[in-house]
Amino acid sequence: MLARSAAGLYWMGRYLRRVEHVSRLMEVQVDALVDQSLEQIHFGWLRLFSHLKVTNPSAVLESDFRNHEDWSFSDSFILADDLTFNVDNPSSIVNCFLQGRENARQMRHCISAEMWLSLNRTHFRLKDLTIDSIWQRDPHLFYAEIVQHISTFMGVCAATLYRDERWEFLQIGRYIEHAQLMAALLIYQAQSATMEDYEELDGYDWKSLLDCFQADQPYQNRYGVKVEPNHVMNMLVTDSILPNSIDHAVDQIRMRMGELGQAPAQKSGALAQRFTGRLVSLLRYEWPDVEDKRRLLTLVESLAYKFHDHLSNAWFNYEIIDSSRI
């Protein structure tokens, strides 16, 4: 297929995965506004903005939240608006969705009509909304609905997209984005234990991650009701049958890469394959024995970045050297 079309599908997968990821975390975060402590709410926002590597608007999070009774609602409103509707925020839900849809619009001839319709339904749903309109009703439901929309879209993809390179690149984009975001999130989460500001988190921060990524039930089945950070971390990183774990994402990438033919730029293609193998080996064989989980997650995140570069160079933006290659 056309290299630019493949890149478009890959980026569509990435952007829409980011929409889902941010929506899931926002769903839990706005839920926390109702009954959690200011510390927990503040930590939740900081975790969101930090791992997405975006600055918070008007430095709201740098203010002394403990001395402001209404901090949880008024400032949260500003932060939620920024992460949801601010089109200048590269990680906001609306911005990522528009980018994902724009990629789809340019590749409409490569995707099924049902996929386009499904995406467009979400577009029309989002189009006229503002933070005021969702805040006045139930913001939790809004974010849950967006997660639902994206899940439906992926279901439509699975049901209708031809299983050739289009599918492979879409899935690779989706899963590399997930692996990268999860690694970044867990790196930040792992340092929470050492933060002096947050002595009273009571494990809610870890529990909220289980809720976010549909891991609470499997966790209970395996470890019982007590939330232990180590167990949560292990589960979200290495549980290969948990759909939102890093291991599952990496395994999917490995499988999808196996389906791709030889890359036009063979050296970069081989490096992308090698980094996939390295990621698998890190998670499967090194993780259990490594004490410093943050260091290993940092390596996972960096490998994800490198994988992206080599994949792009191998299949999308490869150099054309001379006519002898033709």
Binding site: M1, L2, A3, R4, S5, A6, H109, E165, F169, L260, G261, Q262, A263, P264, W315, F316, Y318, I320, S323, R325, I326
Partner: peptide, 22 residues
């Protein structure tokens, strides 16, 4: 569906950049 940047002229022919090469 190609844009100009997807096409290249080489050896007297026009090629498009695909995931399998030119």
């Amino acid at each position: 569906l190609v844009e100009g940047r997807d096409l290249i002229v080489n050896d007297g022919y026009v090629y498009m950049r695909t995931t399998s090469g030119l």
